[in-house]
């Protein structure tokens, strides 16, 4: 086994008296697709929020490519190559695709103290190519995201993550509210991450989806990891029983 790309050790998190993470330790290896499953309140989202910089652990450590990291906001995680795609996706429905792709990372023609004039042409051109790279076909980068279907929105979110060359892509229940056909596309995409050299963490309620696209399955319950196996060493029945 190669060096893990992400290591977390002894993570704890409390929410006003509730012990949401009880000392979680996990190694995630480069280029693997990891399925993270568990019931509501099992601690999946808390773990993911800590990895993506949305929340901070109360105790424990994280290492990225062997180096200790401490994310105080999502920007820190994004700069280190961890992109997250959320269930209620991270797109602003009232804005165009081009503007959405570059939220918070706008290419600037010039700037003063971090505020500057956006390079609209680059934003449009780059978002067109980013979207084409994930095999999505959209009319124009100027279309309003609110006009897209749920699947297309997830597609744009994925295109955005790929465009910024993420090393680790966290997909938090990306198939919720999607049609069967669109779900298939997202699953196919997760399966293809490996070929692009991206590590995937796929969170889902749906075990069939996890078994379809992941190399390894980690199950959580009551704030702890209760199972961690290669896909070929386990079965849907076994996982269901444990949960």
């Amino acid at each position: 086994m190669p060096e893990p790309i992400i290591q977390v050790g002894d993570l704890h998190k409390w929410y006003s008296g509730v012990h949401a993470l009880k000392g979680v330790s996990l190694d995630i290896y480069a280029n693997e697709a990891l399925g993270l499953i568990g019931d509501n309140g099992a601690g999946k989202s808390t773990l993911i929020n800590i990895l993506s910089g949305t929340q901070r652990q109360d105790d424990g450590w994280i290492r990225l490519e062997g180096q200790p990291v401490d994310f105080s906001n999502p920007r820190d995680a994004m700069e280190r190559g961890i992109e997250t795609i959320y269930q209620y996706n991270s797109m602003v429905p009232t804005m165009t695709i081009a503007r959405n792709v570059f939220i918070g990372r706008e290419p600037l023609k010039f700037s003063l103290f971090g505020i500057g004039v956006m390079d609209h042409k680059k934003m449009r051109d780059d978002s067109v190519s980013a979207i084409a790279d994930v095999d999505l076909h959209l009319r124009s980068p100027d279309a309003i995201v609110g006009e897209l279907s749920g699947g297309q929105r997830q597609g744009v979110a994925i295109a955005r993550a790929m465009h910024f060359k993420s090393k680790v892509m966290i997909l938090d229940e990306p198939t919720n509210h999607l049609s069967v056909k669109e779900t298939k596309k997202v699953i196919g995409f997760v399966r293809g991450l490996k070929d692009q050299g991206v590590t995937g963490i796929f969170i889902s309620h749906n075990m069939h989806q996890v078994f379809e696209c992941c190399d390894r399955v980690v199950a959580m319950a009551r704030g702890e990891i209760v199972m961690d196996k290669r896909i070929e060493e386990t079965s849907i029945e076994e996982v269901s029983e444990i949960l």
Binding site: R75, T84, S90, I103
Partner: peptide
């Protein structure tokens, strides 16, 4: 437009 998205994008 959508505060949670803005926040999640840092």
């Amino acid at each position: 437009g959508y505060l949670p998205a803005a926040q999640s994008m840092g």
